[in-house]
Simulated scan of single mutants.
Amino acid sequence: MKGETYRLTTPLWRWSGPSAANWYFLTIDGGVGEALSATALMDRLEQGKGRGWGSVRLRIRIGASAWQTSAFPSKEQGWIVPVKAAVRRAEGLTEGDAVTVQLQF
């Protein structure tokens, strides 16, 4: 449902690109992933088109850090949400940590 808040705990993982760049993500699956998929479908039906790469805008909170970002669909992993370096530093997060996250979309 649009505007609802969801909470889950999921591991922080790293993706390394071909240029040796590292990106960090959380995987959103299960019931929250299904809610994201439903929101993306409703957005496409209401607007007649989807957002770039099928993304869904959301508000996210990890600990004391809150920001706006997008979740992106992944064939292999449900939905993925990037976690920027400033948040990882502020919250003391490293690859493999179990992260409790609050999402609103």
Rank of each mutant, 00 (worst) to 15 (best):
A20W: 08
T27R: 09
E91V: 04
W67Y: 06
W23K: 02
A71S: 05
S70M: 06
T27C: 04
I80N: 00
L8W: 01
T39Q: 09
T5I: 15
Q68M: 06
D29L: 07
R14V: 15
F25H: 03
T27K: 04
L8K: 00
R51S: 03
R7Q: 14
E4P: 00
T10F: 07
E46P: 00
A85E: 13
A64W: 00
A66Q: 13
G3I: 10
G30R: 11
L12E: 07
G52L: 04
A64P: 02
K75D: 13
T9M: 07
V56A: 02
M1C: 08
G33Y: 04
G48Y: 11
K75Q: 14
G31W: 07
S37Y: 08
R61L: 03
R88C: 09
G17W: 06
K2S: 15
Q102G: 03
P82A: 09
T100E: 15
W15T: 15
P73K: 00
L93W: 01
K84T: 11
E4L: 12
A40I: 06
A35S: 12
V81Q: 00
K2M: 12
R14A: 14
G63S: 01
G54L: 04
A98H: 03
Y24A: 08
E46Y: 04
Q77D: 09
P18Y: 14
Q77G: 06
S65H: 07
A38C: 07
M42Y: 13
K75E: 14
Q77H: 14
P18C: 13
R61C: 02
Q47S: 14
P73Y: 00
W23N: 07
Q47M: 12
W53N: 05
A90N: 10
G78R: 00
R89V: 14
Q68S: 11
R61V: 02
V83I: 15
F25E: 02
G17R: 08
K2G: 12
V81K: 00
A90T: 06
M1G: 13
W13H: 06
L93K: 01
R88N: 10
S19D: 15
I80M: 01
T69H: 10
G78F: 01
G92S: 09
